[in-house]
């Protein structure tokens, strides 16, 4: 099954459906148990909760980076837990865009190459000339048009996060997963970055799943889920 084309049923309003999920890290006491959770297409969801409660774990499970010990995670019509590693990698590269707290840009790549990174890393994405054009347009839309040849060390924190957002959006994902994307930014820049994210997600009709500790930003989301309600024990 091609993860690029057929997993997500555009007719269905349910994008992610989790049932009876049970996840543990090795022999530790931490346990994430989610009886049922549905995320609709185009929904903007914020995950909150104390540190170590399993917010990042949950988005990694949704992205297919981790697999649960029990339960079901459906992405559209496809049961993620039954797919191969390769399938899940291809699913991530083609359907999910990631934004990280620490930006995680590659220092040795220019802004342009950082934006195009998903195309360098996985052969499923074809690096056509129009993709390069899209990268330039994205950068221009994020006020990075004149910084395409710069390296991340020559950018401000806000600029770096905007590059990371461009990288997350370059393959036109259906789901944008942001793991505390404003955690390293001052309040003003954080609001600007969130506005950018929400604007892009809205414009593309994508779904935003965002982990945050910043309660001041929660008004912008349609739904807020406290992962602390699902976590048991401690990861430490």
């Amino acid at each position: 099954m091609n993860p690029q084309s057929s997993i997500l049923n555009p007719q269905s309003s349910i994008l992610i459906e989790i049932k009876g999920l049970d996840f543990r890290y090795g022999q530790g006491t931490f346990r994430l148990v989610i009886p049922e959770l549905c995320i609709a297409r185009g929904e903007k969801v914020a995950f909150i909760g104390p540190s170590g409660s399993g917010k990042t774990t949950l988005i990694h499970l949704i992205a297919g980076i981790l697999t649960p010990h029990a339960g079901s995670i459906r992405a559209g019509d496809v049961e993620l837990t039954q797919q191969s590693d390769r399938w899940r990698r291809n699913y991530r590269i083609s359907r999910i865009g990631f934004v990280f707290q620490e930006f995680e840009l590659l220092e040795y790549l220019t802004v342009r190459d950082n934006i195009l990174l998903p195309y360098y890393l996985n052969g499923l994405l074809r690096l056509a000339p129009e993709v390069r054009k899209t990268a330039e347009e994205l950068a221009a839309a994020m006020n990075l048009g004149d910084k395409l040849k710069r390296h991340p060390k020559n950018l401000s924190q806000g600029e770096r996060q905007r590059v990371a957002i461009c990288r997350a959006l370059i393959a036109s994902p259906e789901v944008l997963i942001a793991d505390e994307p404003t955690g390293n930014l001052d309040p003003e820049t954080a609001r600007a970055i969130l506005a950018l994210l929400l604007g892009e997600v809205e414009r593309r009709g994508a779904t935003l799943l965002m982990v945050t500790h910043n309660y001041a930003l929660l008004d912008a989301f349609e739904r807020v889920i406290d992962i602390g309600d699902f976590a048991r024990g401690s990861r430490s």
Partner: peptide, 16 residues
């Protein structure tokens, strides 16, 4: 390590 982990999360194989 973090760089490689990022690549993996984005959708790159460990072999790559």
């Amino acid at each position: 390590k973090r760089e490689m982990e990022t690549m993996f999360k984005i959708g790159c194989s460990r072999m790559t």
